[in-house]
Deep mutational scan, measured.
Amino acid sequence: CHSECLGNCSQPDDPTKCVACRNFYLDGRCVETCPPPYYHFQDWRCVNFSFCQDLHHKCKNSRRQGCHQYVIHNNKCIPECPSGYTMNSSNLLCTPCLGPCPKVCHLLEGEKTIDSVTSAQELRGCTVINGSLIINIRGGNNLAAELEANLGLIEEISGYLKIRRSYALVSLSFFRKLRLIRGETLEIGNYSFYALDNQNLRQLWDWSKHNLTITQGKLFFHYNPKLCLSEIHKMEEVSGTKGRQERNDIALKTNGDQASCENELLKFSYIRTSFDKILLRWEPYWPPDFRDLLGFMLFYKEAPYQNVTEFDGQDACGSNSWTVVDIDPPLRSNDPKSQNHPGWLMRGLKPWTQYAIFVKTLVTFSDERRTYGAKSDIIYVQTDATNPSVPLDPISVSNSSSQIILKWKPPSDPNGNITHYLVFWERQAEDSELFELDYCLKGLKLPSRTWSPPFESEDSQKHNQSEYEDSAGECCSCPKTDSQILKELEESSFRKTFEDYLHNVVFVPRKT
Rank of each mutant, 00 (worst) to 15 (best):
K103W: 15
V104G: 06
H106T: 11
H106E: 15
L107F: 05
L107E: 14
L108N: 04
G110S: 11
G110F: 11
G110T: 11
E111G: 11
K112Y: 05
T113M: 15
T113W: 06
T113G: 07
I114E: 00
I114V: 07
V117L: 09
S119H: 05
S119L: 06
S119I: 04
A120R: 02
Q121A: 06
Q121G: 10
E122S: 11
L123E: 01
R124S: 12
R124V: 02
G125L: 11
T127K: 15
T127F: 02
V128E: 01
G131T: 02
S132M: 01
S132R: 04
L133I: 04
I134S: 08
I134F: 07
I135E: 00
I135R: 11
R138D: 03
G139P: 01
G139Q: 05
L143M: 09
A144H: 01
A144P: 06
A145G: 09
L147E: 02
A149C: 11
A149N: 11
L151W: 01
L151A: 07
L151I: 06
L153A: 14
L153S: 13
L153F: 13
L153P: 11
I154R: 00
E155H: 10
E156G: 10
E156V: 00
S158Y: 07
S158K: 12
Y160R: 11
L161N: 00
K162F: 08
I163L: 04
R164P: 06
R164C: 15
R164L: 09
R165T: 06
R165S: 12
A168G: 06
A168S: 00
L169T: 09
L169E: 03
L172P: 03
L172D: 00
F174D: 01
F175P: 00
R176C: 04
K177T: 07
L178Q: 01
R179L: 09
R179G: 12
G183L: 02
G183A: 03
T185Q: 12
E187W: 12
I188P: 10
G189L: 12
G189I: 03
Y191L: 04
S192A: 12
S192L: 01
Y194W: 12
A195F: 11
N198E: 00
Q199Y: 04
Q199P: 05
Q199S: 04
N200T: 02
N200V: 14
N200L: 09
L201P: 00
R202V: 05
Q203T: 04
L204A: 08
W205I: 11
W205V: 04
D206I: 05
D206L: 10
W207G: 09
W207I: 10
W207T: 06
S208A: 15
K209R: 09
K209L: 09
K209W: 08
N211H: 15
L212V: 12
T213A: 13
I214M: 08
I214N: 09
T215I: 15
G217F: 01
F221C: 14
H222K: 11
N224A: 02
N224H: 14
N224S: 03
P225V: 13
K226N: 04
K226M: 04
L229P: 04
L229T: 09
L229A: 14
E231R: 09
E231N: 03
I232A: 11
H233R: 07
H233T: 11
H233L: 04
H233Q: 04
K234N: 08
E236V: 13
V238L: 11
S239N: 08
S239H: 05
S239C: 10
G240N: 06
G240Y: 04
G240L: 14
T241P: 12
T241G: 08
K242F: 12
K242M: 08
R244P: 14
R244M: 11
Q245P: 14
Q245S: 12
E246F: 08
E246S: 08
R247Y: 06
D249W: 14
D249N: 07
I250E: 15
I250H: 01
A251D: 06
A251F: 12
K253P: 12
G256D: 06
G256A: 03
G256S: 06
G256W: 04
A259N: 07
A259K: 07
S260N: 02
S260W: 05
C261H: 03
C261G: 02
C261K: 02
E262R: 10
N263E: 10
E264G: 06
E264L: 06
L265E: 12
L266D: 00
L266Y: 02
K267L: 10
F268H: 04
Y270R: 15
R272L: 14
S274K: 12
S274R: 14
F275Y: 12
I278S: 03
L280H: 00
R281W: 04
W282R: 00
P284F: 11
Y285S: 10
W286K: 11
W286G: 06
W286Y: 07
D289L: 02
F290S: 13
F290L: 06
R291S: 01
R291G: 01
R291D: 01
L293K: 03
L294E: 05
M297Y: 04
L298E: 00
L298K: 00
L298N: 00
L298Q: 00
F299H: 11
Y300L: 10
N307P: 06
F311Q: 08
F311G: 02
D312V: 06
D312G: 14
Q314K: 04
D315M: 15
D315I: 03
D315Y: 11
A316H: 00
C317L: 03
C317F: 14
C317E: 08
C317M: 02
G318L: 12
G318P: 06
S319Q: 12
S319C: 07
N320A: 09
S321G: 09
W322P: 01
D326F: 08
D326P: 01
D328P: 15
D328F: 07
P330E: 14
L331R: 09
L331G: 14
S333D: 11
S333E: 14
N334Y: 08
D335G: 03
D335S: 07
D335I: 14
S338I: 06
S338E: 12
N340D: 13
N340A: 14
N340S: 06
W344I: 15
W344R: 13
L345Q: 15
R347A: 03
R347T: 06
G348F: 14
G348H: 09
L349W: 00
K350P: 02
P351V: 06
P351G: 05
Q354K: 03
Q354R: 04
Y355K: 01
Y355R: 00
V359P: 04
K360P: 00
F365R: 15
D367F: 13
E368T: 11
E368D: 11
R369T: 11
R370A: 12
R370Q: 07
G373H: 03
A374S: 04
D377T: 09
I379C: 13
V381F: 02
Q382D: 06
Q382R: 08
Q382S: 14
Q382M: 13
D384P: 09
T386R: 07
T386A: 14
P388Y: 01
P388R: 00
S389A: 13
V390S: 03
P391S: 00
D393F: 15
P394E: 04
S396K: 08
S398M: 02
S398N: 02
S398C: 02
N399K: 13
N399L: 13
N399D: 15
N399M: 03
S400D: 14
S400W: 06
S400K: 05
S401E: 06
S401R: 15
S401L: 10
S402I: 05
L406R: 00
W408V: 03
K409M: 14
K409D: 03
K409Q: 04
P410E: 02
P410A: 15
P411W: 03
P411A: 04
